[in-house]
Every structure is written in structure tokens, then in C-alpha cells.
Design a protein around this nucleic acid. Structure first.
Length: 343
DNA sequence: AAACCCCACAACCGCGAGTAT
DNA sequence: CATACTCGCGGTTGTGGGGTT
């Protein structure tokens, strides 16, 4: 089957539309309604191909198009829909009255995508990014300390701080990842090293040498299994809060999308059937880190809120990280000689 | 003030699916 | 059934405007 000869005519005008052209198109459609796009240009007196006319109409001239900035509500909806439908912009657009697929696509590529990346979330998978370059970069400092090639005591202090920061970040990230993956919480930090053997006690080492990832796949647990493993009941409740928030969103989906959503969520996206744990650490080692409980409340409350999403938690985390107040307390704890952390 | 860079968005291109002949 | 054609979608590009150096 050959390609359509629709726009092969080189004499047809391309590029930005002039107001007169817009008016011709509008007048024609108002008078004759939508018919064959192929025939429209000639009938409307336009030196454009039908495809160009259709695009101009559907993306710009249609009277029901809502112009202007996307609201936060719309942005959240787009993110959620994208996590369910992927790059099905036309499908996503059907859930946002007055918005075109092209507009949503542009908004995604220019705003949301960057925002998610900044938050450490892979915009394609909606899971946390596996390329934590900043963590890896920091880990070089650790490696230096590990091999004893310190130059000055000041270097040592810097590396210690970097290491402590990384450990704290890793632990928190780990919990978040567990939440996002719908997995049980890791009881302690050594748990992540199980997959790579007892010699690899540094989780970052696994990241560096490729033997470990931030997404240690573990079996999903039922609420009862959660409890049996000693996870606080609150954690289970928290998980239901997230599930509820998702189910609210599900209500807004059409049946067709619902089927897709269920398919995705049960495989590699968000888990709603399996309860999600809360952002609480049960690690004996890290419990001392979490003594500064007030500092983690912001993150926890984000999860506790029935209307919050995982993205809220991430955003809060990143804000905390940026402000440094949260990490400062951890650093104060871990940079002391009696630091409970040892790799 | 000019040059350069970056960003947002409109528009284009190529492809696949669906439909008519 | 094969072919021709149209339509719609998603990826990509081009361009204008604003900000920065």
C-alpha cells in the first residue's frame, strides 16, 4: 500500500497560519460543517493541504478549546493519566475538556517531564529514576575515603559528611521506592545487600558495580503478612490512604481506560491491590536516625493525607533535601565518632 | 545594544489503522 | 482480497519571544 499523496504538492503553503487563512477555515466549517478534510482546502479557498487544515482546526481554531495555562488540577490529572495510559495523548485529552492532545503533549514535554525528572522520577515509567547520578557522584568521595587516599583532615570530614548524607538519602529513598513499588519495607539497611551477597554491605557499592539496584524486587505482601513481619499497623493504614487516593482517581476513568489501568497497575506501575507501606523506617540501625521524628513528619503526613499522592511525597522530600534542614540533623548524628553507621 | 541561549508552542512529518472501491 | 485513500496519532522540528550575558 502506497503512502497517502495528501501533502505531496509542493505548491501548497506551509508554516504559520495567517489570520485570513484562519478566517477562511472558520467560515467554511461554520457554514458547511466538518466533512472531508481532503476536499476542504479547495472548497474553502485555502492553499493548504487537508491535513494542515485539520491540525489547525483541532489544535487551535476549534471553538471549545480552552486556552491559557494548565491548572494544578489539570497537571495532576495529566500525570496520573499518563501513568496509566502512557503517551496516548489523544486518550488523555478526552479526560481534559477543552485541551487538545497536542497541547497536552507539549505541556508534558516542556513542563511536567522536567518536573518529574527534577523530582527523581522517571517520566516514562513513573518510578524513581535508576540513574541517581548525584548519588553516584557523591559516592566517588566515599570511594576515596574507602581506599585511604585522604589528603587532609578536612577532606576526611567532607567525605564523612557526604557518606552520611548518602546513607540517609539512600535509606529514605529506599523506603520511598518500596512505597512506589508496593513492596514491604526493608527491615534494615543490610537487607538491600542480600541480593548481592554478604560481602557487599555498602548498598551504593552495588549501584556502582551494577550488582545491585535501587529496585530490589521482592514479593508483594498482603496486609496480614505486613503485620506478621512487624510492620506497624499505621504503615498499613497509610498504604490504604494511597490506595484510596488512587481509587478516587479510578472513578474518573472510563471503562476502557479502567481496564488498561488495572492491567498496568497490577504489573509494573502502581500497586493498588497490594497495600502500600507508609514512609516509616523500622530499621534498628536507622531508628536512631529517625529519632528526629518531627523532621520526617512532613513526609509522613504527605502520605497520610487521603488526597495526597506519591508525587506529593516526592516533592516534599526534594523540598526537604533542598532546604537541608532534614539532612542537617542526620549529618549531625552520623558525622559524630559514635556514629551508628558502619559499612 | 547586540549576540546568544533557552523555552514554549505551533506546525509538520511519517506511520498505522480504518474505510471505500 | 487487493489497492487506494483518508484520518488520526505520536514524535519531531522550526520559530518567535523572552531572558541572560
Amino acid at each position: 500500500m502506497g503512502r497517502s499523496p495528501c501533502c505531496d504538492d509542493n505548491n501548497l503553503k506551509k508554516g504559520p497560519w495567517l489570520p485570513e487563512e484562519d478566517q477562511k477555515l472558520i467560515d467554511h466549517i461554520n457554514t458547511h460543517g466538518l466533512g472531508s478534510w481532503k476536499a476542504l482546502p479547495k472548497l474553502a479557498g485555502l492553499n493548504r493541504c487537508g491535513k494542515s487544515c485539520r491540525l489547525r482546526w483541532t489544535n487551535y481554531l476549534r471553538p471549545d478549546i480552552k486556552r491559557g495555562r494548565f491548572s494544578e488540577e489539570e497537571e495532576r490529572l495529566i500525570i496520573k493519566l499518563h501513568s496509566v495510559l502512557g503517551n496516548k495523548w489523544s486518550r488523555i485529552a478526552t479526560h481534559l475538556p477543552g485541551r487538545t492532545d497536542n497541547e497536552i503533549k507539549n505541556f508534558w514535554n516542556t513542563h511536567i517531564r522536567k518536573k518529574l525528572l527534577h523530582m527523581g522520577i522517571d517520566p516514562n515509567t513513573h518510578k524513581p529514576r535508576t540513574d541517581f547520578n548525584h548519588l553516584l557522584n557523591l559516592s566517588h568521595l566515599l570511594n576515596g575515603a574507602q581506599f585511604g587516599n585522604l589528603v587532609t583532615p578536612w577532606d576526611n570530614a567532607l567525605r564523612l559528611q557526604a557518606g552520611a548524607t548518602q546513607l540517609a538519602q539512600f535509606q529514605l529513598l529506599q523506603n520511598l521506592l518500596q512505597v512506589l513499588n508496593g513492596n514491604a519495607l526493608v527491615p534494615n539497611i543490610e537487607r538491600t545487600s542480600v541480593d548481592v551477597g554478604p560481602q557487599n554491605l555498602n548498598p551504593l557499592q552495588g549501584l556502582l558495580n551494577g550488582t545491585n539496584t535501587l529496585f530490589t524486587k521482592e514479593p508483594n505482601l498482603t496486609p496480614q503478612e505486613f503485620l506478621n513481619q512487624g510492620v506497624a499497623p499505621q504503615a498499613v493504614n497509610d498504604s490504604h490512604a494511597i490506595s484510596n487516593s488512587w481509587s478516587c482517581f479510578e472513578d474518573g476513568l472510563e471503562l476502557e481506560d479502567h481496564a488498561i489501568y488495572n492491567n498496568i497497575s497490577s504489573s509494573n506501575c502502581f500497586q493498588t491491590e497490594i497495600p502500600l507501606p507508609g514512609l516509616v523506617s523500622v530499621s534498628p540501625e536507622t531508628s536512631s536516625l529517625n529519632q528526629k521524628e518531627s523532621n520526617t513528619n512532613a513526609t509522613n503526613s504527605a502520605i497520610n493525607s487521603p488526597t495526597s499522592t506519591v508525587f506529593d511525597a516526592w516533592e516534599k522530600l526534594m523540598d526537604e533535601e533542598a532546604s537541608g534542614s532534614y539532612w542537617k540533623d542526620i549529618l549531625d548524628l552520623t558525622s559524630s565518632p559514635s556514629s551508628p553507621i558502619s559499612w
